[in-house]
Each structure stands twice: as structure tokens, then as C-alpha cells.
């Protein structure tokens, strides 16, 4: 039988990850990293949001960008799925629509790295959704 990964293996790798993390944390604080939320309701999932989420997790790591990728619900832009919301440290969130891996790569290179805006931004009413939630 082949050896499969277990909790023991996780324990073994934990310390290596931890020391790497400690080194980084001296420079950065958690709120200073880019935050990406992938819209993952029925509409997003059916349009391939999972692949986009995986892509961001892997590419941020490859391109040595510190970021947190999480899931969120439907933002109401079902026609433009997959959609993502990118929040650069200290900036307002920006929502991008029709994100495929090519667009995702462009967003990382131009918007996340340099702060340049790229095509595909969904303007407008994002704040009103938040307001509705708090009603």
C-alpha cells in the first residue's frame, strides 16, 4: 500500500511553514496584504469560479505576492461571473467581472502589483449592496 499523507505529516511540515511565516510577519501585517474575494454562489460556481479561486491562490504564491483569497456569496452580477473583489491595502474594493485565467493574470500584474486599473471593472453600486445588508 502506498503511503498517504496523514496528520503526522502535517505536524512535520508545520514548523517549517511557521518559521517562514515568522520571518515574513516582521515586515508585513495581515491587514497590509491584498485581499481577494471570489463570488461563489450558484452563478459563480457554474461559470468556473473554483478554477479562478485556485488560480489566484497558486499564482499569488508563484509571483511572491502576499494575499488572502476567500469566498463570498453572489454579488448580484450573475451576468458577469466569475466575479472577484480585490481590495488593495488602504484602497476601496474593486469588483472585476468575466474573470478568466488570462484576465486574472492581468489583474495580478497590473492592478495588484502596480495599482493600474484594467478593463473589466464593474463600476457602480457595490456600496448599495452593503447598505442593504445592514438594513
Amino acid at each position: 500500500m502506498t503511503k498517504v499523507k496523514s496528520l503526522d505529516d502535517l505536524r512535520k511540515m508545520r514548523d517549517a511553514v511557521k518559521s517562514k511565516l515568522d520571518l515574513r510577519e516582521k515586515g508585513d501585517k495581515a491587514e497590509k496584504v491584498v485581499q481577494i474575494k471570489v463570488s461563489m454562489a450558484t452563478c459563480g460556481i457554474a461559470s468556473g469560479a473554483k478554477e479562478i479561486m485556485t488560480y489566484f491562490i497558486e499564482e499569488l504564491e508563484h509571483r511572491s505576492i502576499e494575499g488572502v483569497v476567500t469566498q463570498t456569496g453572489c454579488m448580484g452580477y450573475c451576468y458577469a461571473e466569475p466575479t472577484i473583489e480585490v481590495t488593495l491595502p488602504g484602497e476601496d474594493p474593486v469588483v472585476f467581472g468575466f474573470v478568466d485565467t488570462k484576465k486574472a493574470s492581468e489583474i495580478i500584474e497590473k492592478y495588484i502589483k502596480k495599482g493600474e486599473l484594467v478593463d473589466g471593472i464593474i463600476p457602480a453600486s457595490y456600496e448599495t449592496i452593503d447598505k442593504e445588508k445592514t438594513k
Binding site: 502506498t2 498517504v4 499523507k5 496523514s6 496528520l7 505529516d9 502535517l10 505536524r11 511540515m13 508545520r14 511553514v17 511557521k18 517562514k20 511565516l21 491562490i57 497558486e58 499569488l60 504564491e61 488572502v68 483569497v69 476567500t70
Partner: peptide, 24 residues
Amino acid sequence: KELDGIPINQPAIIKFIKEMIDEN
């Protein structure tokens, strides 16, 4: 609990969990 404070969404951890589920 095993991670002892390391965020579960660290890329190395994510990769590990995925492989662990796949193999098991």
C-alpha cells in the same frame, strides 16, 4: 489545532490538505 496558529489558508497548507484528501 495541529497548525497551532498558522492560518489554514497559507498556500503550503492548502496544497498539503488537497494532496492529503486526494491520496486518502
